[in-house]
Amino acid sequence: MVDPYALYETMARIRSFETAASKLLAQTRIGGFLHLSIGQEAVAVGVCAALRRDDLISSTHRGHGHCIAKGGTVERMMAEMFGRESGYCKGRAGSLHIADPNAGILGANAIVGGGLPMGVGAALSAQVRGSDQVSAVFFGEGAVAEGVFHECLNLAGLWRLPVVFVCEHNSWAEMTPVTTHLAAPDVEEFAVPYRIASEVADGNDVLVVHDAASRAVARARAGEGPTLLVCRTYRWRGHFEGDPATYRDPDELAAWQERDPLRALREVLVAEDTSAAARLDALDAEAERAVQRAVEAAEAEPPAPVGTVVEDVYRAPLAIHGGAHA
């Protein structure tokens, strides 16, 4: 039985992390492209709570929530955003590329749809090795228009791979609405031609997401093949920080903000137990403090040394690599 307070705690940590990141960029204390998942926390948390530590995920450009939910630490993620060597990518690649073998995070990804094939490959690996690991692949509905989505569903369907395709359907592909970018906006329909299972979940209800994901993970672990899990949700911020999102109706955003996934879970828990409010307030406060500590620690660290930019290009570099060129 999943602990709803643990789900809330992780959602609060994601919300705090994203809120802090937004402020840090606005203050130019960090740089680069920043794609925030505020409003989508329930999908990341509901799905990852259904996974084991040794299961694998592949993530997206909007991936901070996935990484935190799968066990990435806010300290090392924040260090990455500040360009510090203790960051997940040693400060060189940025938050679009958080990866951690120990937490089963194959990587966030700056290419829309780019993480699907590697997630399928992790499932292939589990099948070949005879492991019962499961791979969960996050992507937005924008990625459904990419060829790899179809290649991957076909391949996973053919080989009955232990993979859960998690579509975070937020109705916006960057700055273009789903009515303009998908001929079939109900993404779960794509499970039919590829003959795989499907689930549709309210992506703002973490308990519903967790239930659906648990069924999908159980099928995958039992050797019953892939599931396409479509979670309807909404992105509160623009495509990237700095995008004023003038292309969308403010009423649409306001309606979804009424369905804030954190508030929704809070209402459920408070209705069950009058002491819940104080407990959840404490979790909110602790999440903010944890992120604040991570910001302070990261900011205090020295920048990653310039010389490290040519390290790790190869696992097994040959003598000639990186040699002086006249």
Binding site: L106, P117, M118, G119, V120, G121, L124, S125, S135, V148
Partner: peptide
């Protein structure tokens, strides 16, 4: 991509 994911795991 499947080969890549398999190589990573």
């Amino acid at each position: 991509g499947a080969a890549l994911g398999a190589a990573m795991t």
